[in-house]
Simulated scan of single mutants.
Amino acid sequence: MYRRAKDVHAAEELLAVLDADEQGPWVLSPEQLGVLIRAVHVRSALLPSASRQHPALDAEIRAAYLRSRGAPTA
């Protein structure tokens, strides 16, 4: 799913953080948010019912990703 070495590294770091502390709060780098949003999109495409299980969390992830890219959120 991730072709670039920096994306693989960001995904590995993200997994390590999530494994260490399931409760958060987490401060994620733009790269980590990028791989997380890609995973959310893949999950939604492959398992549409899964994307409806936690819509608020998915929305927060998307909003954080947009903020990390400098895009205004509504």
Rank of each mutant, 00 (worst) to 15 (best):
4 R>C: 12
62 R>G: 00
66 L>S: 06
65 Y>V: 05
30 P>G: 07
27 V>K: 14
7 D>E: 15
15 L>I: 02
60 E>I: 09
29 S>P: 00
28 L>I: 01
42 V>E: 14
15 L>A: 13
23 Q>A: 15
54 H>F: 09
71 A>D: 10
43 R>Y: 12
7 D>W: 00
63 A>T: 14
64 A>M: 05
73 T>L: 10
49 S>W: 05
71 A>E: 09
69 R>F: 02
62 R>I: 09
46 L>N: 06
38 R>H: 06
47 L>Y: 14
39 A>C: 10
72 P>D: 12
14 L>K: 01
70 G>M: 07
3 R>V: 11
47 L>K: 08
5 A>C: 02
55 P>L: 03
44 S>N: 13
35 V>F: 04
32 Q>F: 01
54 H>Y: 13
72 P>T: 15
25 P>H: 11
9 H>M: 10
62 R>E: 07
55 P>K: 03
50 A>S: 11
13 E>K: 14
46 L>I: 02
40 V>K: 03
22 E>F: 03
19 D>H: 12
60 E>T: 12
12 E>S: 09
53 Q>V: 09
70 G>T: 11
62 R>Y: 03
1 M>I: 01
4 R>G: 05
71 A>K: 03
37 I>P: 00
26 W>Y: 15
31 E>Q: 04
7 D>P: 00
35 V>N: 03
4 R>L: 14
63 A>C: 03
38 R>W: 09
44 S>W: 05
41 H>K: 10
67 R>Y: 00
71 A>T: 08
61 I>Y: 03
52 R>E: 13
63 A>N: 02
30 P>A: 09
31 E>N: 07
9 H>Y: 07
36 L>A: 11
46 L>D: 10
29 S>M: 02
32 Q>E: 11
61 I>D: 05
74 A>H: 06
51 S>H: 10
33 L>H: 02
19 D>P: 00
10 A>G: 01
55 P>F: 10
58 D>M: 08
54 H>N: 14
43 R>F: 03
34 G>N: 15
20 A>S: 14
7 D>C: 07
54 H>Q: 13
53 Q>I: 07
5 A>T: 08
41 H>A: 14
4 R>D: 15
3 R>E: 13
2 Y>G: 06
7 D>L: 05
19 D>Q: 14
52 R>T: 05
55 P>E: 06
73 T>N: 08
36 L>S: 02
71 A>L: 13
42 V>I: 15
6 K>Y: 15
2 Y>E: 08
5 A>D: 10
37 I>N: 04
8 V>Y: 03
27 V>Y: 04
74 A>P: 11
42 V>D: 14
57 L>K: 06
63 A>W: 00
10 A>C: 01
22 E>T: 04
69 R>M: 12
5 A>R: 04
31 E>H: 06
53 Q>P: 00
54 H>K: 13
68 S>T: 01
17 V>T: 02
4 R>W: 15
4 R>P: 00
47 L>W: 08
71 A>R: 04
34 G>E: 15
7 D>K: 04
67 R>T: 04
10 A>L: 04
54 H>C: 08
33 L>P: 01
50 A>G: 01
59 A>H: 12
33 L>I: 00
52 R>D: 04
66 L>D: 11
41 H>G: 10
30 P>H: 03
50 A>I: 08
